[in-house]
Every structure is written in C-alpha cells, then in structure tokens.
C-alpha cells in the first residue's frame, strides 16, 4: 500500500499527487516512470514521475483523466492509498551539457518534461521551454517551468491565453530568430511529438521524445510496449521511454495504442454510469 500525502488539481482533470514510496524516491531520476495499480481488480498504468523527495520518501506524479483508471485515480485524495506503485522504471533522461536545449511540453506532458528541464538547467544548459495546451485553464506548471528555464513560451490552441497556435509555431519562431538548438525534447500527445519531429528533421536537430505505448509489467517481460525505432523492435519500458524522434515510427505507435479502444470505452462508460463523474467535478 502506498499512501497519498497530497493531492491537488492543477487544472480541470489534471491532478498532482504526492505519494509515499521511499524506495522509489531514493532512486528516481528525471525521465523515469512508475506503474500504478489502484485496487485489486485494477489495471497497471505507467505514469512519469514528476519529482521525488528522498528525505521525505515521497514521489510526485501528475495525472490527466483520460480513461477509467485515471478518472478513478483523480477521484482520490490525501490520506487514501494506492495498492501498487513500482519503479523507477525506464532509462533516465540523458543529462549532459548540450548547450541550448528546447524543452517542449504539450498538455500534461509539461509535468513529465519539468524534471528533465530542471536537471539540464542545473548543470548549465541554456533551457528554452515551450508549453502548449488546448486552452487557458489547461496550462499547467508555467511558474515551475519559468524557474528552471532561461525563457518560456506558451501557446494555446484557441488563443485564450498567451500566443494562439501550436508548440511547433514557437519552435519555428526560435529557429527563425537564429537560435542554434543542440537538443529538442518533446513530451506530449503523439501528434504533437510527431509534428515536432518533422520540424527538426529537416534541420537535423537532435530530438528526443518520450513514448507512452501500452504497457503491462514495465520490466521487459511482456513486450507489449514494443515500438518500431529505425525499423527495429524496442521496448519502451527498458530501452526507453525516450527515443530519437527521427527514428520512431509514430504511425505504428498510434495504431498499437488504439488496440483496446472498444474495451477502454466499455470501461469508461461503465465507470461514468456508476460515478457520473461527480466526484471530480464537485472538487473543482
């Protein structure tokens, strides 16, 4: 059992949890993730670790309500427990002196990009962060990103806050103004990561993405999270989750992630039926 010590909504449907997990807190490095299971009949879901506090023995994760499990998770509060939290899994982000780095976070991806941005900044990289969200109220961790970046650019799809447009618009702007980018790290929805990869491919800017395929054990045992990288199978759980964006087959990733769409809808419908999503809305 893993106790939730803090839980707060960062935006509608996006919640930050601090969880007691001393073993994981001691070992976590930016870019790594945990697998959670909420209750006995629950599924296992991978979630990137946002930060850890080895002294307190806690880790924090940021979760967006998408399907049944994430809705259920986001209905939990401080004092409640998770049945299983296992990690830290995956290879950590490469933290070296690159020079100028663009960190791009889309939606809840900002929370996953934050620890890597902080670590890169700490060792002396120049960090330019681009945060994108659908609309104003879904922009998260802007202040946190400002603290670890030399410059922050924000976009919203609908223009309700900051610049209207997509993160790739800002990336183009950076390139146009003559920034020499040594590395781009993009974390967010697959279409966003794919679009970033297309922008940087032509310019041969090294670009890393953090992939989120379907996963079960997270230790390399099942092979369900295999992604096609450079035409070869790689397991996101042990070979990743970060990969060279220019070598990833995003079409295969998108398609494989849709494998259980019907079943996911069944679960979600059933969940809505029994909860009517009141729990979450009433707390906002």
């Amino acid at each position: 059992m893993f106790k939730i010590t803090q839980a707060e909504f960062l935006a509608p449907g996006i919640k930050r949890f601090v969880i007691e997990a001393p073993r994981i807190a001691r070992k976590q490095k930016p870019g790594q993730f945990v697998i959670l299971r909420l209750y006995e009949r629950g599924e296992r879901i991978p979630i990137t670790i946002e930060s850890s506090d080895p002294a307190r023995g806690t880790i924090s994760v940021v979760v967006q309500s998408v399907g049944k499990t994430t809705h259920l998770l986001n209905s939990l509060n401080a004092g409640e427990t998770l049945l299983d939290v296992v990690g830290p899994l995956g290879k950590p982000s490469e933290i070296v002196q690159f020079g100028t780095v663009a960190i791009i976070g889309g939606g809840v991806g900002v929370a996953m990009a934050h620890p890597t941005a902080a670590a890169l900044k700490r060792i002396g990289n120049r960090v330019i962060s681009i945060i994108g969200a659908r609309t104003k109220e879904l922009v998260i961790l802007e202040k946190d990103m400002r603290e670890v970046s030399d410059e922050v650019m924000v976009t919203t799809d609908d223009g309700s806050y900051a610049a209207k447009g997509f993160v790739t618009d800002k990336l183009q702007e950076l390139i146009k103004r003559g920034e020499r980018l040594d590395l781009v790290l993009a974390i967010g929805p697959i279409p966003m990561m794919r679009a970033v990869a297309e922008v940087t491919r032509k310019l041969a800017i090294r670009t890393i993405v953090s992939l989120n395929p379907i996963m079960i054990d997270g230790t390399g045992m099942c092979g369900g999270c295999r992604v096609l990288v450079d035409g070869k199978s790689q397991f996101a759980c042990v070979d990743g989750p970060e990969f060279d964006a220019h070598r990833v087959d995003f079409a295969v990733l998108t398609r494989r992630n849709s494998t259980y769409r019907t079943e996911e809808k069944t679960s979600m419908d059933e969940f809505r039926e029994s909860h009517r999503c009141q729990a979450e809305e009433s707390r906002l």
């Binding site: 009949r41 599924e43 296992r44 499990t69 079960i216 054990d217 494998t259 079943e263």
Partner: peptide
C-alpha cells in the same frame, strides 16, 4: 500475463482489457 496475472478474461469485471 494479460489473462493470468491481470484476469483479462474477466474483463470488464477486471480492468485490464484483452481483444475480443
């Protein structure tokens, strides 16, 4: 693993799905 560990054969009573 889906079937045995995660009880996917008892979906949707258990949450981990399996193709139909």
């Amino acid at each position: 693993t889906r079937i045995n560990l995660m009880h996917a054969y008892e979906f949707p009573k258990y949450d981990q799905p399996m193709a139909d």
